[in-house]
Structures are given as C-alpha cells and as structure tokens.
C-alpha cells in the first residue's frame, strides 16, 4: 500500500527538507479531505481536520518506525482525528446532522414552499440526489458508516479496514453488509430506486 514516492519524501523530510513534507502533504490532502468530508459531512470541519492531521504528521513523523506503513498510519490518525472532532462537536451541539432529518420532514418543508403534493421524482430531486444520499448515510450508525466510507470511497481491502479499525474482519464484513442494506431501506423510504440512481450516474 505504501508508495515508493511517499517513502522517499518521508526520508527527505526527516533529513530536514520541509519542501518534501509539503509535497507529501499535497499528495495526501485531497484523499484525507474527501475521507474527512465523508465522515464529518461538513467542508469546513473536514478542512480543519485535515489541517490537524497534517500538523500531527509533521510533528510525529520522526516517530514512525517504518515509512512503509505510512499509509495506514496517516489513515489511523485521520480516523482518530475525525472521531475526536465528532465527539467535541456533539458536546457543543454544533454538527448539522444532530438535527433529525427525515424524508417526511424535508418533504413537508418543501411541500409547504411549493404549495402542492410532490411526485415521487420531484421528492427525490427536491434536493440534489447527492445530498439525499449523504443524508441517508448520515443516519447510519457510526460503525457502519465508517466501514462503508472506507470500502466504497477509499477502496480498502477488508483486512486493511479490520486492522485500521482494530476489529475482526468478519465484523467489518457484517457491518458493511448491514450498513448497505440499511442504506437501501432508507433509500426506498425516500423513493430513490435503481432507476433514479442510474439516471443520475
């Protein structure tokens, strides 16, 4: 998983070249940002998290014994950072999806604005489909959501997810299965079916 370029950049940085660290950060910032965004579902929070992660990497990279393991190490940091962020956000009641979003409540709000009953297609499109998917994902339990993000968006193998989350591999699989099935049910409730999705894609 570790990239040869990463290893070279890490070695150069540890030899005192800050430019190498910047190149390393640029290689990773998009990936980490997308991951953090999908976990936290807020652009600013994700930026803040990525920044915190990169600062931690900058500080503690010299403690990383094996540069080959950089990839899983940086994901480990990112996961922890996201979880910490979520915890503090929950404490401060800041996060957007602590408010209960349901298909009904959103539909009701939309209907009152438009002034008539929505057709199923309209209901699905009243927000962009992507936002609805995001909302649906947001309503899954954290343990299922993180597995879905790591598998679907980051393309990790099950073994890697198991190692990063420190859970048995079969737990990862069943969480992913349950998560996707749960997702499917919620989509059905929102009248989003296969056709709507394929249209969008």
């Amino acid at each position: 998983m570790a990239n040869v370029d990463d290893v070279v950049l890490i070695r150069n940085f540890l030899d005192g070249d800050v430019g190498s660290f910047n190149r390393l950060a640029w290689r990773w910032q998009e990936r980490l940002f997308r991951f953090a965004y999908r976990y936290l579902m807020d652009e600013e929070d994700a930026k803040e998290t990525v920044q915190a992660v990169l600062i931690k990497v900058y500080k503690y990279l010299k403690k990383l014994k094996d540069p080959e393991k950089f990839s899983s190490w940086i994901y480990q940091i990112t996961i922890n950072q996201c979880r910490d962020f979520r915890k503090s956000a929950k404490k401060n009641q800041m996060h957007p999806f602590t408010e209960e979003l349901t298909a009904e409540s959103v539909d009701a709000a939309y209907q009152s604005t438009v002034g008539r009953q929505l057709t199923p297609t309209e209901s699905a499109h009243r927000k962009s489909l992507g936002e609805l998917i995001q909302m649906t994902l947001a309503r899954l339990p954290e343990e299922q959501r993180i597995v879905i993000i790591m598998k679907e968006y980051e393309g990790f193998k099950f073994a890697e997810i198991a190692e990063l989350l420190n859970v048995p591999i079969n737990t990862v699989k069943s969480r992913l299965y349950n998560g996707l099935m749960h997702m499917q049910k919620l989509l059905k409730q929102l009248n989003i079916d296969k056709e709507v999705i394929y249209d969008e894609l």
């Binding site: 910032q29 930026k47 992507g130 936002e131 998917i133 994902l137 679907e152 099935m181 999705i197 394929y198």
Partner: peptide, 17 residues
C-alpha cells in the same frame, strides 16, 4: 440491493479541496 446501495453512494460527490 447491495448494488443499488453501492451505486447510490457514487452519486454523492465530495467537494474539491
């Protein structure tokens, strides 16, 4: 069902950094 759920996830795009 897995396929539908998996595909639906592809719809949600992350913004650019």
């Amino acid at each position: 069902e897995l396929q539908t759920a998996s595909h639906s996830l592809k719809v949600w795009k992350a913004p650019e950094l």
